[in-house]
Amino acid sequence: RTKYLFKVATIAPEGSIWTKRFHDFAAEVEEKSNGEVGFKVYPGGIMGDDRAMYRKMRIGQLHGGGFTMTGIGTVVPDFRVMGIPFLFRSYEEVDHVMEGLWPFFSKAFAAKGLELIAMTEVGFVYSMSISPVSTLSELKKSKIWAPEGDPVSIAYLETLGITPLPLGIPDVLTSLQTGMVETVFNSLYGAIVLQWFTKTKYISDIPFAYAYGCLLLDRKRFARLPESYRSMIKETARKHFSLLITDTRKSNSDSRQVLQDNGISMVLPDPGDVEDLRNMREETVQRVQGTAFSPQIYKTTMKLLDDYRNQAYKRK
């Protein structure tokens, strides 16, 4: 019989790569603990969005959750730092920085009673529109969505002179369908899984920002496990969730073809505008630093990134 049960929720839909890998992970943990550690999964947002999930973890109805960065960022603001627009240029950079930041994130979550088990990925997000958007001025005319509770992307858009419409992820599809928003942001695979691609026929072919999330368990409940189980869970998680990251990247690159097969155009943005978009990053950071995330975590992130870029330069 299950001795240690973890009830875990997520807004990721059942059948998506995220829940599939989680089920694999859960199955292996159960097997390795001879059924003593078990998981009950509530997918597809049936327990509510990230905020409701966090509230339910606080009172013990849930013991874990697969959170998105925007959702859990309100609890641990420093976790937002990797979501700064135009921060990363490649997944290699992401991996290097993520590894370097893990101890900081882990500590910040621990301070809030949360155990960081694994990082998850949505991938690089692109701006997707109902109508073709290739210049900045066209983008400004469009009704743009921003994830609710994500001060970084909202500040970035405001720096561009855009007032976005903040909505929770579950409400985006309806808003696209009714024309309440015209431009949204998602990874290529995400746009397919959430059906957004049925409306967004034009995708600007430039990665806007990196989107990600994490798997958290209740720290107190996790601490009640015997030490051997704790390290076993972390090890199993490392194995399955690095497979998940590989899955995600593969799905994202496969999705490009799927989207094109469905008549979606990848629009090349104006090179001058791209430069402008990149330059807005610094200004945005200056605006939100200290409220959206701490200056220390930003410094650490930039140091990790510069180190990686210098080494990569040397290797060349």
């Binding site: 005319k141 009704k143 609710e148 007032t163 976005p164 419409l165 903040p166």
Partner: peptide, 9 residues
Amino acid sequence: SSGLLWADP
């Protein structure tokens, strides 16, 4: 083509 950020919440 603008709006109040806080109006909908």
